[in-house]
């Protein structure tokens, strides 16, 4: 099966400073990957590079989306092809009301309305986007916008940081809806059918790992100092990181891999 996203030997600089090195990543249709890594390791930069923001300069390697080389495409063209991003820290849009913005998305207004209810954001539709939103409200609004945007590949930058337990459940569920892992009550598609037909993919950054309790991720990766140092079962990787920390985790997992290979 053709990968949804294929990143090959990617190296990226910001303002002449190397940020990412030797990144290889393959996300197949229907897969969800999670990205772990300490602060400043380059996680947001990787998502931003896939989205195509010009400040991330690709100095080597290629990014393919559904077989097409998108390495040189501008942001809007990538979005048009089906890539979407929930921002870690989105900018404020003065005077732009969340409800008005949602109405402008191509999709149907009904979804925005139902989605706002699902994410407990109905009272925010007449608020200015990201102005005075609390941390958790920002995250919910990001997920709502992405859900209405309906991308094929959803890049989620720390969707759960700063979110309380109850809202975490809302966000987890909405992520499953937008990744076609669950069907919203008003659609009510059987799970079996979803499994068979789902084609959407996700790449989720998480520090807390809480999202793993809601979203059944397929593969985990650890980004460390700008490179993916190990990949594997996301839950195992995460519990390992929790026990021994990032640097130990990388060493261990890598030596174990060496051991297995040798």
């Amino acid at each position: 099966m053709e990968p949804l996203l294929l990143v090959e030997d990617l190296a990226v600089e910001i303002g002449g400073r190397p940020i990412l090195e030797n990144i290889n990543l393959e996300i197949k249709p229907g897969e969800v990957h999670v990205l772990f890594g300490p602060n400043g390791s380059g996680k947001s930069s990787l998502l931003g590079t896939i989205m195509g923001f010009p400040r991330y300069r690709v100095v080597r390697g290629k990014i393919y989306f559904r077989g097409e080389d998108i390495t040189g495409l501008p942001v809007e063209e990538r979005a048009a092809r089906g890539i979407g991003l929930a921002f870690q820290r989105p900018p404020a849009l003065r005077g732009v009301l969340l409800g008005q913005l949602l109405e402008r998305f191509k999709g149907d207004g009904e979804k925005a309305r139902l989605g706002a209810r699902e994410l407990n954001l109905e009272d925010f539709l007449d608020r200015e986007v990201n102005i005075g939103f609390s941390g958790g409200e920002t995250k919910r609004s990001e997920i709502l916008q992405l859900w209405v945007q309906d991308p094929q590949l959803a890049l989620l930058d720390e969707p759960e940081s700063g979110v309380d337990v109850e809202n975490l459940a809302l966000i987890g569920r909405a992520i499953n809806y937008l990744l076609e892992r669950e069907s919203p009550p008003w659609e009510g598609k059987p799970l079996r059918e979803l499994r068979r037909t789902r084609s959407k993919g996700g790449l989720i950054i998480t520090h807390t790992g809480h999202i793993l309790n809601y979203v059944d991720a397929d593969v985990g990766h650890v980004l460390f100092q700008g490179s993916i140092r190990c990949s594997g079962n996301p839950r195992e990787l995460f519990s390992f990181i929790q026990k021994v920390g990032y640097s130990e985790c990388i060493r261990c997992v890598n030596s174990r891999e060496v051991g297995e290979n040798g």
């Binding site: 923001f53 942001v75 979407g84 921002f87 900018p91 849009l93 005077g95 732009v96 913005l101």
Partner: peptide
Amino acid sequence: EEEAIEYLLARGFPRQEAVSIIVRGFLNV
């Protein structure tokens, strides 16, 4: 702000529409 434009580009709005959303918001007191 370029950052605000990029935000809307990533949401799938063409550049012109992104700018007009921001300017309209600015003028909307």
